[in-house]
């Protein structure tokens, strides 16, 4: 967008998923109840929202999702390592669309180690590729009792809805 349509930003607003979630929460347009998620959760930084966004756009989305997590989950933890040094899940770069499944599952062994180390019952990701890959990893490594949710799914499930 910056490269091909540089004037786009003068004509239109742009909002990331994190901007939207944070705006809705901060302005009171939505309210959430963190008791909706009593499980011990782990946040996974997607490469593209974290270190690659920082590289390409000068801003890594590390803190915003964590502030959203604080409001929607009773107990959550960071992986070790996390943020810029985080391990990719193994599903990035279109690898989920290729036939090379064995290397992709091997790639993700570090992510499984992190999930086990954190004793996580719920892994929260704001990325479709990470979501699909981490579910595939949990199945391949036969890790039971761990759920995977999108960050916006966590928000939706914690919504206080007045009917």
């Amino acid at each position: 967008m910056q490269q091909w349509y540089p004037d786009f930003f003068d004509r239109f607003g742009t909002l990331t998923v994190f901007d939207l979630l944070e705006d809705y929460l901060a302005s009171g347009r939505i309210k959430v109840d963190k008791t909706a998620h009593p499980q011990r959760a782990l946040y996974h930084d997607p490469c593209n929202y974290g270190r690659k966004s920082r590289e390409l756009f000068g801003r890594g989305y590390f803190d915003q999702p964590r502030r959203v997590m604080d409001q929607c989950l009773a107990e959550w933890t960071d992986s070790q390592p996390s943020r810029g040094n985080q391990y990719c899940c193994g599903g990035g770069g279109g690898t989920l669309l290729t036939p090379f499944k064995a290397p992709r599952i091997h790639y993700g062994r570090r992510k499984i180690d992190q999930i086990k180390q954190a004793r996580a019952e719920l892994v929260v990701v704001p990325c479709h590729s990470c979501h699909g890959q981490i579910k595939a990893l949990l199945a391949a490594y036969e890790v039971k009792g761990v759920e995977v949710k999108y960050l916006w799914e966590v928000v939706a499930d914690a919504l206080i809805v007045e009917s």
């Binding site: 810029g84 990719c88 599903g91 990035g92 690898t95």
Partner: peptide, 12 residues
């Protein structure tokens, strides 16, 4: 095609 373009190499 095996690389995930994750950028951990570059970051380090």
């Amino acid at each position: 095609w095996l690389c995930t373009l994750c950028g951990k190499c570059e970051y380090a």
